[in-house]
């Protein structure tokens, strides 16, 4: 497949994620949108890795595998992030009985 298909697919997913962050105020949904964005990036990385492999396989049998390793580490970090983030959301709910980010306007003061 031409790599730019993957590029546009990733961009579309990424922008959907951004639009979700901007339109929704439920903290959990915003979190999910961030996951969508991360996945968009992952997909792009894998596509590029395969593109790179196709081009350089003759020279280096493992060419492009770094891209997939990156994706793996992104997943690792995302999992850690989700565990902490969800803990924060639970904490927030416990304190203000809502997960609406608009109640979190302390930055103004």
């Amino acid at each position: 497949m031409p790599v730019n298909y993957y590029i546009f697919l990733s961009i579309a997913l990424f922008c959907i994620g951004i639009a979700g962050v901007l339109t929704r105020r439920n903290a959990i949904i915003i979190f999910m949108c961030i996951e969508i964005m991360l996945n968009a990036v992952n997909l792009m990385l894998v596509a590029f890795s395969k593109m790179h492999h196709l081009k350089n396989a003759a020279v280096d049998a493992t060419a492009g595998s770094d891209g997939q390793i990156f994706v793996f580490f992104i997943m690792v970090v995302a999992a850690a992030e989700v565990s902490v983030g969800l803990a924060i959301i639970v904490m927030m709910y416990r304190n203000i009985h809502s997960v609406d980010v608009n109640f979190l306007n302390r930055l103004k003061h």
Partner: peptide, 12 residues
């Protein structure tokens, strides 16, 4: 116009 390798390749 470059291609991404599908179905084949064993790095993954």
């Amino acid at each position: 116009n470059q291609l991404a390798e599908v179905k084949t390749g064993n790095i993954g």
